[in-house]
C-alpha cells in the first residue's frame, strides 16, 4: 500500500514541533507498515474529529440561551430516524476502511518468519535489568547493544529469565513481549544504517527505566568484518 502524500504532511507537521518523533521516523520494515496504518488511522480520525467538533461548536453558538428566552419551552422532539441511521452506518464505513488493512498487516507481521530468506537469527534474553543478544550463527554474545546488517532480515527470538519485559526499537519495529514461559518472535529488516534506541516497554521493576540498549545498523560489509573480528576475539 502506498502512503498518500497527505499522511506525510500530517507527519511532518507533527514532527516539526518536536525534534525526535522516533515512531514516525521509521527505519525498518515492520515499523514502516505500522506507520502506514498509524497515518491511515490518524487521517480517518481527524475527519471524525472535524465533523464532531464543527457540529459541536455550531450548536453551542446557535442554540445558546439568549436573554429573554429563560422561560421558553422549546419544542420537544423524540429523535430522527434518518439522522440516527446516518450515524449508525457511517462509523461502519470508516471502521471498514480501517479494519481491512489492519487485519492484512497483522497477518503479514505475524507470519513474516516463514517467508524470509537467509534471516539473521538473534536470541535475545531479557532479565532485570539488561539485555543479552546472542548470534548463534557466529557464536557472539553482546550485552545491551546489538549490531545488525542493513537490508538483511532479522529474527529476534525473545525469551525472559525472570519477569515479563517488552522488546522495543521504536524506529525499527513495534513491541513484542519477552515472556519467561514461552518464546516470542519479532522480525524486521533494517532499511538504513544508523544508531537506534531500544528499550524495555513492559514495566519490570525498580530499574525498568534503565533497561535500554543500543541498536547499530551497519553496512553488510562492515557487519561481516565485525563478525570475523569478534569471532577471533572469542577464541
Amino acid at each position: 500500500m502506498r502512503v498518500p502524500f497527505s499522511f506525510y504532511v500530517i507527519g511532518i507537521i507533527l514532527m516539526s514541533g518536536c525534534s525526535n518523533l522516533s515512531v514516525l521516523d521509521s527505519k525498518g520494515t515492520a515499523a514502516d507498515s505500522e506507520l502506514k496504518l498509524l497515518y491511515l488511522s490518524i487521517a480517518l480520525m481527524v475527519i471524525v474529529l472535524l465533523v464532531v467538533f464543527s457540529l459541536f461548536i455550531r450548536f453551542l453558538i446557535k442554540y445558546r440561551e439568549r436573554p429573554g428566552q429563560e422561560n421558553d419551552f422549546p419544542t420537544q422532539i423524540e429523535g430522527n430516524k434518518k439522522l440516527e441511521t446516518t450515524w449508525i452506518v457511517l462509523p461502519f464505513v470508516i471502521l471498514f476502511i480501517l479494519a481491512v488493512p489492519t487485519f492484512a498487516t497483522t497477518y503479514q507481521l505475524d507470519n513474516k518468519a516463514e517467508s524470509m530468506d537467509e534471516p539473521l537469527v538473534i536470541n535475545v534474553t531479557g532479565k532485570q535489568f539488561s539485555w543479552v543478544f546472542y548470534y548463534p550463527e557466529f557464536e557472539i554474545t553482546l550485552e545491551n547493544e546489538v549490531k545488525l546488517p542493513v537490508d538483511r532480515p532479522v529474527i529476534f527470538n525473545l525469551h525472559s529469565e525472570d519477569v515479563i519485559h517488552s522488546f522495543w526499537i521504536p524506529q525499527l519495529a513495534g513491541k513484542k513481549d519477552v515472556l519467561p514461559h514461552k518464546e516470542n518472535q519479532l522480525t524486521l529488516t533494517p532499511l538504513e544504517t544508523g544508531t537506534y534506541d531500544g528499550k524495555c516497554a513492559e514495566f519490570c521493576g525498580a530499574s525498568h527505566a534503565f533497561m535500554t540498549f543500543e541498536t547499530t545498523v551497519v553496512e553488510q560489509e562492515t557487519f561481516k568484518q565485525w563478525t570475523n573480528v569478534a569471532d577471533k576475539q572469542e577464541d
Binding site: 498509524l38 488511522s41 490518524i42 471502521l95 517488552s166 513491541k175 516497554a201
Partner: peptide
C-alpha cells in the same frame, strides 16, 4: 478517537505501554 487508533493492532505495537 485515540481508542480506535489503539485498536489498529500493528499501530498498537507502537503505542502499547
Amino acid at each position: 478517537v485515540t481508542g480506535v487508533m489503539l485498536s489498529v493492532v500493528p499501530a498498537d505495537y507502537q503505542y502499547h505501554d
